[in-house]
């Protein structure tokens, strides 16, 4: 007979005193290690084995993996299900929550459900507009924005209450994240907006792709002046560009991603553009590692997920550390 009392999704670790979650990702950051996270490929499948196959690509090289929530406004397997599947074998997935497709009633239900399944990291996003996706005729919800979503989940965790004020019997113990885009206008105010996200409840930040290190350094300098790096962990976003053509396409068609000419020219002038793109990514990771206040990197290698392990290995930022994965000795 099934003993329900013995079911513990993901066999959670014992939660440390000053920690908000029992997840491995928070532990790595709080221990002061340079953390590495990576974005899982979105899945158009209904097989749990496909989720594990994607996760295994990162085994031994990442401390957390992000499951996107309808990335680029396209239909994919839900982030709740992907994260629950991963947490079940002990991974520390980061569940992205977008405000585009669900209202406050649905989202709060998902937060409780995911926490019950062992998901201990959640990343609050506003979400892309539906016009960029495969269902541009869909109704955009946007009942909340990333900031109010942070406040709501923090309230669920710290006050054991829904937004309505109704009591939650067992609060979700989650480590809360948010995104930041240091290189999009109004650039001067981006650190102020980061401050707002921290005030709303962000414990960690994953940024949009950084290709302009100089601009990012300015952002980090102001963030340090505002005291923000002491209040949250900042992971800088990176990713390998497949070719100069891809870089140009992204610059023109994906709003909010700034790729300087010098990067595109370097790609265009190389013999193997794909390899050069990965080399640039490795160099960026190494440079970001040296910036004061940067707690880690977040690798978004769209359609190059299989190259992530090699990129991280060559960057050397993990040192002798080998992040946990199921089956590690």
């Amino acid at each position: 007979m099934l003993d329900h009392d013995k079911i513990h999704p993901g066999n959670p670790l014992p939660q440390k005193d000053d920690h908000l979650s029992c997840g491995r990702f928070e532990q790595v950051l709080r221990e002061g290690h340079f953390a590495v996270t990576a974005e899982l490929a979105p899945l158009d499948s209904s097989l749990a084995t496909d989720v594990y196959e994607q996760a295994r690509l990162f085994d031994g090289f990442v401390d957390g993996m992000n499951a996107t929530d309808g990335s680029g406004a396209h239909c994919h397997m839900s982030s709740v299900a992907m994260c629950a599947t991963l947490a079940n074998v002990g991974y520390s997935p980061i569940m992205q929550i977008s405000c585009r497709d669900k209202n406050r009633i649905a989202i709060q239900g998902d937060v409780l459900g995911a926490a019950a399944m062992g998901v201990s990291n959640m990343l609050c996003l506003s979400g892309d507009g539906v016009q960029v996706g495969d269902h541009p005729e869909a109704k955009p919800v946007f009942d909340l924005d990333s900031m109010s979503l942070l406040e709501i989940i923090r309230g669920m965790r710290d006050k054991s209450k829904f937004l309505s004020g109704r009591k939650i019997t067992s609060a979700p113990q989650v480590f809360l994240g948010a995104a930041s885009n240091p290189t999009a206008p109004p650039i001067h105010y981006r650190p102020d907006r980061l401050a707002k996200k921290i005030a709303a409840g962000a414990d960690f930040i994953q940024t949009q792709y950084i290709y302009d290190i100089a601009q990012f350094k300015t952002f980090m300098a102001k963030s340090r002046d505002l005291g923000l790096v002491d209040k949250c962990f900042i992971l800088a976003g990176v990713g390998p560009l497949a070719s100069a053509r891809t870089a140009n396409w992204i610059r023109t068609n994906v709003p909010g991603i700034d790729i300087p000419d010098v990067v595109v020219d370097r790609l265009a002038g190389s013999e193997n553009q794909k390899l050069e793109g990965q080399k640039i990514c490795i160099e960026l990771i190494q440079q970001l590692h040296e910036i004061e206040g940067v707690s880690g990197v977040h690798v978004m290698a769209y359609r190059q997920e299989a190259a992530v392990a090699d990129i991280i290995k060559k960057s050397g930022v993990l040192g002798d550390r080998k992040p946990w994965y199921p089956g590690i000795e």
Binding site: S126, D128, D145, P185, R193, P255
Partner: peptide, 27 residues
Amino acid sequence: CPKNLRNGPCGGVRLDGHCEVKPEMRC
């Protein structure tokens, strides 16, 4: 704001300061 953000701007602002959803409009 097409996303009804009360705490914007989002990360999708175009480099010229225009909206990602409605490119003809300033964010």
